[in-house]
């Protein structure tokens, strides 16, 4: 379900090739490389749309966008780890889950 550069620029109306290349150079979007050409999966397309919102619609400048992306990526990183941790805890027997819950409450409220 991946598309190439040409199709991407055509699908996202406000996107120009120059802008896309700039973003790739800055590392804001990281397409897969296949035989020299850039390949954009759905996640990359979604990211490009987000970048259009940030840079084009909201007119955040070149210094602000990486700040936002960094925070966003950190948040998603944390959310995913939290999710994994929660799943790992859920696999434990009820007695262990209870101990964790009690310790957590004690610490969180201190």
């Amino acid at each position: 379900m991946a598309i190439n550069e040409e199709d991407l620029v055509r699908e996202v109306s406000v996107l120009s090739v120059q802008r896309l290349h700039k973003w790739i150079r800055l590392g804001w979007v990281k397409p897969e490389r296949h035989e020299g050409a850039a390949l954009f999966h759905e996640v990359d397309v979604a990211r490009v749309r987000l970048l259009c919102n940030l840079e084009h619609d909201l007119e955040f400048d070149e210094d602000t966008v990486p700040l936002l992306l960094s925070l966003l990526d950190q948040i998603h990183g944390l959310r995913n780890e939290l999710r994994s941790m929660a799943a790992a805890i859920n696999e434990q027997p009820p007695a262990v889950r209870e101990r964790i819950a009690n310790a957590y409450r004690r610490i969180a409220e201190s």
């Binding site: 996640v43 990211r47 950190q74 998603h76």
Partner: peptide
């Protein structure tokens, strides 16, 4: 309707964007 980035952010496919800097 285009799907938002956050829907992809919690899947394996988004790992090349995820940051560990929060840890």
């Amino acid at each position: 309707e285009p799907r938002f980035y956050r829907e992809y952010a919690n899947q394996g496919g988004a790992r090349h964007y995820q940051s560990n800097a929060g840890f």
